[in-house]
Design a protein around this nucleic acid. Structure first.
Lengths: 295, 295
DNA sequence: CTAATAGTGTCTTTAAGACATTATGAA
DNA sequence: TTCATAATGTCTTAAAGACACTATTAG
C-alpha cells in the first residue's frame, strides 16, 4: 500500500504503534458446547438390534451461580485463540475428547444471561461417535453425565393482526441421565411483518439447566435436524465401520421419526462406501459394513 | 430454589453480591452487517423489464487501519444490549435503515483479524427491499456506497491421502460501486477425516476490503444461497407489492443462475398471495401483483 | 425351524425440468 | 400490428413414499 495518512497525519504503521485500546467496557466471551453422541442401548433379546439414543453431555455445576444445576461444558476464550480453538481446547480439557466434528452454532448475547457479569456465549455443536468415548478422561469426569434427549415441538398459536404475523412454538426438552431427569421448556416467538422480522427464544422453564443452556440445547437440536437431511453431518455419529441400518437409526433419532428402509437407502447410500467386512453374532442375517465416503 | 451453599458456605445471593469480575483480558465485540438489497437497473427499451442486481452496502474507511478501504457497516456492542440490538442500532445510526430482516451469520474470532487489538466480530445479514432505501439518511451517508456483486466459485482441488480428505474451493468476489471496482479472493479449505473436520476460510486477496470483510461477505453469500431455496427469506428483498417475475429475479440473482418460469411458479407461488392490483405502463401484458403470504 | 434383520424389487405418487402455447397492453 | 412479457398446459424424467418379497444367520 501507499503511505496513506489519516487526519492526524499518521501512517498506518504510526497509528498502530500509537494505538491504545479504549477503556470502555468489554464482555467476557465463553464457548459452550453441545456435544452429541448416538449411543446404543443395552439389549435383552439376542435377535433384536440395539436401539440408539441421542445423548448430550452435561456437567453438574460445583459452584455458584446455578450450583447443583447441569450445564454445558465450556470455558472462556483466551486472547491468542479463535473461539473454535477455545472450544476444541475446552473439550479436551474437560472431557478428554479430541479431534471431533465441531461447528459454530450461535452467539448468545443477552446481557442478563449470566447473573455475575456481562458474558457472551459463542456456542458450538460437537458430534462424536460413541465408540470413541473414553469416559474416564477429563477434569470434570466425575461431574459429567450423558443425558438422553426427548425433544418435542408444539405450535401454540399463530396470529396475524395489523399486518404483524406471529407464531409461538414451544419446545419441550426432557433430558434423562443417571438418576437425574430434567424437563425444560423453551418458547420461540416469530414475529414478522413488512417492518422487519424477529425470532426470539425465551426460556419458559429452565428445569435445572444452568444459565440459558436450555435455549442453546434447543437451538442445537433444531440445527442438527435441519442439517441432517441435506448434509453428511450424521456420519460423524457412527463408528468407522457401520451398517446402513445404524446410519438410518442415527437419522431417526435426530429427526425423531421412523424412516422407511428402501427409500432411505436410495437417498443416503451414496454417503457410504461398501467394504468387504460384515457383521457377525447377530442372531439374524449379517449385514455389510460401510465406511464414510468423503466428498 | 433451596438455599444451596457452595464450598465457601455462601448462598447464591451472597456469592453474587460478593462477585467481582476477574481482570483477565477480554475481547472487544463488534457487530458487522452485510446489508443486501435487490436493485432494479435502469432500462433503455420501454418493453424490456429492468434487470435486478444484488448489492451490498460498504462504507469507505476514514481512519486507520485500512484507511481508504471499504468496510462493512458496524460498530461495538454496548453492555446493555444484545448483538442483535447492537446490529439494529448501528444499522439505523450509520445508514438510517430500520425495521428490516436481520439474521446472525457467524462470529469471526481470529485474534489477528483487527491489527489494533483483540476484536471479535459477530456478523449479521440484513435484507432490505430497495424501495425502502433512503440514501440520504445516516451518519456515514457520504462515505457509503452500494456495490453490485459478482460471485464465482471454483473448485481448486480435492485430494484424499492417508484418510484425510481435503477440498480447496476459491471464491472470487467482484464488487462494483460508484467508480470503484473491488476484486477479492477467499479460499475455503475443507479437511475431513475420522479425526475430526475443519472448514477454514482464508483471504487470498482482500482487494481493498478492510479487515476480514471479504471472508464475511463470502460467508454471507453462501448462507443466502443456501437458505433461499428452503425458506421464504427472498421475500425480504421485494417490495410490499411484487410480481412473480420480480420474485423470480431475486432468486436468480441470489443463486447466480437463470430459472425456468413454470417450475419456479409451481414451487414458490405458495409464498405469495395474489391481490387485485396489476402492473401498468409495462409495454406488454400487465402482471398480477402479489403480497407476501405469512406462514 | 424360527425370529429377526438384510437387501432389493416395484408400484404409486409427487415434484422438477423443459418447452410450447395462448393472452394481453403500450407504442 | 408488433414486441416482450404474463400465465398456464403438458410431456418427460427423477425422486420419494409405501410396502412386499426373498435371503440369511444364531440359536
Amino acid at each position: 500500500m501507499t503511505e496513506l495518512r489519516d487526519k492526524n497525519g499518521l501512517t498506518e504503521e504510526e497509528y498502530l504503534c500509537a494505538y491504545r485500546p479504549g477503556d470502555y467496557e468489554k464482555p467476557s466471551v465463553a464457548v459452550d458446547m453441545v456435544i452429541f453422541t448416538a449411543m446404543a442401548e443395552e439389549n435383552e433379546n439376542y435377535r433384536k438390534l440395539p436401539e440408539k439414543e441421542l445423548k448430550i453431555l452435561l456437567i453438574k455445576r460445583g459452584g455458584h451461580p446455578y450450583l447443583g444445576s447441569w450445564a454445558l461444558p465450556g470455558g472462556f476464550v483466551e486472547p491468542d485463540e479463535t473461539t473454535e480453538q477455545a472450544a476444541a481446547r475446552e473439550l479436551e480439557e474437560e472431557t478428554g475428547i479430541k479431534d471431533i466434528y465441531l461447528e459454530q452454532l450461535y452467539t448468545f448475547s443477552d446481557p442478563g444471561r449470566d447473573p455475575r457479569t456481562w458474558v457472551m456465549s459463542c456456542s458450538y455443536i460437537a458430534l462424536v461417535d460413541s465408540s470413541k468415548l473414553d469416559v474416564k478422561a477429563g477434569d470434570d469426569a466425575d461431574r459429567a453425565e450423558w443425558f438422553s434427549i426427548e425433544f418435542e415441538q408444539e405450535e401454540k398459536s399463530t396470529s396475524s393482526i395489523n399486518g404483524v404475523f406471529e407464531r409461538v412454538t414451544d419446545f419441550s426438552l426432557t433430558l434423562v441421565g443417571g438418576s437425574e431427569r430434567i424437563s425444560a421448556k423453551v418458547r420461540r416467538t416469530s414475529r414478522r411483518s413488512n417492518k422487519g422480522s424477529e425470532n426470539r427464544f425465551t426460556i419458559v422453564d429452565r428445569g435445572n439447566l444452568a444459565f440459558d443452556h436450555a435455549m442453546i440445547i434447543t437451538s442445537a437440536l433444531l440445527r442438527l435436524r435441519g442439517k441432517v437431511e441435506y448434509t453428511d453431518i450424521a456420519l460423524n455419529l457412527v463408528p468407522e465401520y457401520f451398517t446402513l441400518t445404524e446410519l438410518q437409526q442415527v437419522y431417526e433419532i435426530i429427526l425423531g421419526k421412523k424412516l422407511i428402509k428402501a427409500p432411505f437407502r436410495r437417498k443416503y447410500a451414496y454417503l457410504a462406501d461398501p467394504t468387504d467386512k460384515i457383521t457377525s453374532d447377530a442372531g439374524h442375517r449379517p449385514s455389510k459394513l460401510f465406511r464414510r465416503r468423503w466428498m
